[in-house]
């Protein structure tokens, strides 16, 4: 597996988590979320990945949407975490910490050899 493909696989798993983290900080709209992810380098995901995920999170009632006027054109659809979304983020954060610690230990052991 190429490094790029590996990064893609890895990103796919954490993208939802990162979107929830972004929305936890403040409500946001699609383009802003895409550019925030873009600024994070390896987490940059195409619009054709982010928008469908947002749609699914909304169908799942993990996020809620509302319309807000935009200075550049038609009203934007903003997203914010629902109560269920905050619970999910809390669970995912714990899972993420556990995974990071486990990988850290694994990498550490590898380095000790």
């Amino acid at each position: 597996m190429e490094a790029g493909e590996w990064t893609t696989q890895l990103r796919r798993g954490v993208l939802e988590f990162c979107i929830l983290q972004i929305l936890h900080q403040q409500p946001s709209y699609g383009y802003e979320i895409v550019t925030r992810l873009e600024s994070l380098g390896p987490l940059a995901a195409g619009e054709n990945t982010v928008y469908p995920i947002l749609r699914r999170l909304k169908a799942d009632r993990v996020v809620e949407s509302f319309l807000q006027d935009s200075p550049s054109g038609p009203p934007r659809q903003y997203y914010r975490l629902s109560a269920e979304g905050r619970k999910k983020l809390s669970v995912l954060s714990k899972e993420w910490d556990a995974v990071v610690q486990a990988v850290g230990r694994c990498v550490g052991k590898g380095a000790d050899r």
């Binding site: 709209y29 699609g30 383009y31 802003e32 895409v34 550019t35 619009e47 928008y51 749609r55 935009s70 550049s72 054109g73 038609p74 009203p75 934007r76 659809q77």
Partner: peptide, 17 residues
Amino acid sequence: REVVDEIRAHLQDAKAA
């Protein structure tokens, strides 16, 4: 309609950027 409106807003935002 919701999906199309969202992509329409995306085009607008990206163009404005």
